[in-house]
Simulated scan of single mutants.
Amino acid sequence: MEKAKVYFTDFRVKVGTPQTEKLKRLCIAAGIKNINMEGKFVAIKMHFGELGNLAYLRPQYAKAVADLVKEQGGIPFLTDCNTLYPGSRKHALEHLDCANYNGFNPTTTGCQIIIADGLRGTDEVEVPVKNAEYCKTAKIGRAIMDADIVISLAHFKGHEMTGFGGCVKNLGMGGGSRAGKMEQHSSGKCKVNEELCRGCRRCAKECGSNAITYENNKAFIHEDICKGCGRCIGACAFDAISNEQWDASDLLDRKMAEYAQAICQDRPTFHINMAMDISPNCDCHGDNDAPILPNLGMFASFDPIAVDQAAVDACQKATPIRNSQLGDNLAAAGEHHHDVFLDNNPHVNWEETLIHGEKIGLGTRQYELVTIK
């Protein structure tokens, strides 16, 4: 496979030039205007942020992309699917309220918002996945599959279950219906190390299936109820919870790549990674820790694997921020991996997403980086 082109620009602008204009220039340089959008529905897939989280992308970036679509005669809408876990986005009405509270509405973004899998997260299309090894079909939110064109607008960050979250996660996990998310998370169950558990009950608040109870002030996870979503692992501040299946995160990564394949195959797609406010964990939490790396820039490409690989490589070259989760881990005694994602969330093989995505033909890890000033 030939090298993909990934276009990059940093966040520096001259006085009087907004960053949104720089984002537009980047997208144009990357070829977004080569897509025929005239009269076509264009889904802009993004994450609206959980209530309490402040690391999500600002709505002004979404408006910049929507404006480009409208300039080309397209009909844009912002979209995401409902969550598997409790929070402020578990059904469409809550999800729309959350989006509005966080600044996303037709006035601020210039387009409508549609929750892709409907009111209860059950409005899905079962899509055959090309070259799949684990998910022969994927359950994708119907509005995403009804779109003629898909644009991924992703906040690039760390992640407690997949190492990093970028384009592939935005599409694969974010585009799955509630049943689709459960299928991706079903590779393993979580268990508690009672010696490390402090009984703080934070894990139970984050649990996606009410599977955690307390016995003698120690958490206990009911395996028959647990969906394997991993929310409890990220919630525990004492490393008391782990996945009992050693390769569960690898399987999650592979399934996620196959779900992204279901969304991208057989239609035009375009992908943007915004490497800013690079938090250690997912935007699905109702909070966000300090960034682990400085703001790096914006990446755009027609190739979802290449755009993630380019952002990963930029992160690996960046200097970690000392006062952060990554900085604390690097300062602590013990094994260091010289890998920002492994050192940020140890025992998570982040590379598997890209390896499997390339294997099934979603994209290539080989890219040429084109820098735009």
Rank of each mutant, 00 (worst) to 15 (best):
M1S: 09
A4Q: 12
K5R: 14
D10C: 07
D10G: 09
C27T: 11
C27H: 10
A29E: 15
A29R: 15
I35N: 07
I35L: 13
F41C: 02
F41A: 11
A43N: 08
A43P: 03
K45W: 13
G49A: 07
L51M: 03
A62V: 03
V65R: 07
A66P: 02
G74H: 01
F77N: 01
T79C: 13
T79D: 10
C81R: 13
L84H: 04
G87N: 09
S88I: 04
K90P: 00
L93G: 04
H95R: 06
A99R: 03
Y101L: 12
N102S: 02
N105I: 02
P106L: 05
Q112I: 11
Q112C: 02
G121Q: 08
E126I: 01
V129T: 04
A132T: 09
Y134H: 15
A138R: 08
K139I: 00
R142C: 03
I144P: 05
D146W: 13
I149F: 09
S152A: 15
A154L: 06
T162I: 01
V168S: 01
N170E: 08
G176L: 04
E183R: 15
S186E: 03
C203M: 09
K205L: 15
E206C: 12
T213D: 15
I225D: 09
C229V: 07
D247G: 02
A248T: 03
D253E: 00
R254G: 00
Y259T: 02
T269R: 07
M274F: 13
P280Y: 11
C282K: 12
P291N: 12
L296E: 09
F299I: 08
A306L: 06
D308Q: 09
Q316Y: 14
K317C: 14
P320R: 10
I321D: 01
R322Q: 13
N329D: 07
H338K: 15
D343F: 14
N344S: 10
E351R: 13
E351W: 07
T353L: 11
K359Q: 10
I360L: 10
G361K: 10
G363L: 09
L369V: 11
